[in-house]
């Protein structure tokens, strides 16, 4: 009798506590740790990147395994990660698969099975220890939501049978939509603007682009952590017309580029056709008079936004993820700023 009463009271207390917490989702992001995304097609860390992982006690790497895109009408994997090296033992790997939205309009009948099987096999074959999660990244829209959610449900069930979790990326515009069926989400606080528009805003991250979406953040019904940018873009414009996203051009080449405003704006001074990387369709014609606008993610903006979001949704930064690990950008912020980002 006493035991039964105790149980009832405990249940009542639990219900009371749950009611007082408002509509915030149950559950938290599991195994939280300072994290980074790794987005290159070959897993090879240089000394600066390894040092970064050590210095900032990075515990998790979200590792892009492959993309899924539509080729000749079929959804197929592309840009598969090549494992030249392994991750440090102290770091947990979370495979990530990026799906183009176009995939969701192709035949997805066997997509979940193929996807899970391939990821599991890749992890096993390449000796990744302790993998317990798969993340799917997709910029789904209202028109593809039903298909995507059905895919997630299927994937999640298959992962459950393996003892794995499912996480997803969440873009700002998706905060006003129903939450996907996953265990948690990573809120992407980068690529917030339209890089094709030359409107004076930083398309990587601008608070003005973020603010309109924050209304839905406090009550969003999925455990969340946040991801912030650490990279730069070189965007080619002809007047106000976007022409191309350049691939790491040497803007110090004075035969081709002349600085106009510090290191953020260059003018093209001689013609050049940029043939892309091998096996790429990347051909860009540079014409004198065009301009290269360089956007960089900024620590002050990131940290300010981090603070604001934490106030709206306490606990959001139990885990912070940096997009993305690349030694070209590891001097974007100073050590103190990285510490604040990961550990405040």
């Amino acid at each position: 009798m006493k035991n039964a009463l105790g149980i009832v009271c405990a249940c009542l207390v639990a219900l009371f506590v749950a009611a007082c917490r408002g509509s915030a989702p149950e559950g938290t992001v599991p195994d939280v740790a300072p994290s980074v995304y790794y987005w290159r097609t070959t897993l090879r860390l240089d000394s600066a990147e390894r040092a970064f992982l050590r210095e900032h006690r990075i515990g998790k790497v979200y590792l892009r395994f492959f993309d899924v895109a539509v080729r000749e009408g079929r959804a197929v994997p592309t840009a598969t990660l090549r494992f030249d090296e392994s991750l440090p033992d102290s770091v947990q790997a979370v495979p990530v698969v990026f799906l183009t939205e176009e995939c969701l309009h192709a035949d997805t009948a066997e997509l979940a099975a193929r996807l899970v099987e391939r990821v599991a096999k890749m992890a096993r074959v390449n000796g990744l220890q302790g993998v317990r999660e798969l993340q799917l990244d997709c910029d789904w829209a209202a028109s593809s939501r039903a298909t995507y959610f059905a895919l997630l449900t299927d994937v999640r069930e298959r992962l459950r049978q393996m003892g794995w979790r499912l996480s997803v990326t969440i873009r700002l515009h998706q905060l006003s939509q129903p939450a996907p069926p996953a265990d948690y989400g990573v809120l992407m606080l980068y690529n917030t603007g339209d890089f094709r528009r030359r409107n004076g805003r930083n398309p990587i991250l601008d608070e003005r682009d973020v603010e309109p979406f924050l209304r839905s953040l406090p009550d969003y019904a999925l455990p969340l952590c946040a991801a912030y940018p650490d990279y730069r873009w070189q965007l080619l414009f002809e007047g106000g017309t976007f022409r191309a996203l350049l691939y790491d051009e040497n803007l110090a080449d004075s035969l081709v580029y002349a600085p106009v405003a510090g290191d953020s704006l260059y003018r093209v001074v001689s013609a050049r056709t940029l043939h892309g990387a091998l096996q790429s369709d990347y051909d860009v014609r540079l014409v004198p008079g065009q301009e290269v606008v360089v956007h960089r993610s900024r620590a002050d903006v990131v940290l300010r936004l981090r603070q604001r979001l934490e106030s709206l949704r306490p606990g959001l930064h139990a885990q912070t993820v940096l997009y993305h690990l690349d030694s070209r950008y590891l001097n974007n912020y100073n050590a103190n700023e990285y510490e604040k980002l990961f550990h405040d």
């Binding site: 001689s270 013609a271 050049r272 014409v287 004198p288």
Partner: peptide, 19 residues
């Protein structure tokens, strides 16, 4: 050919009067 393209964009070269 890059030199040809550059001179063909004579208007842009005119920007170099002061630059």
């Amino acid at each position: 050919n890059n030199a040809q393209e550059t001179i063909d964009n004579a208007q842009e070269l005119a920007m170099g009067r002061n630059g």
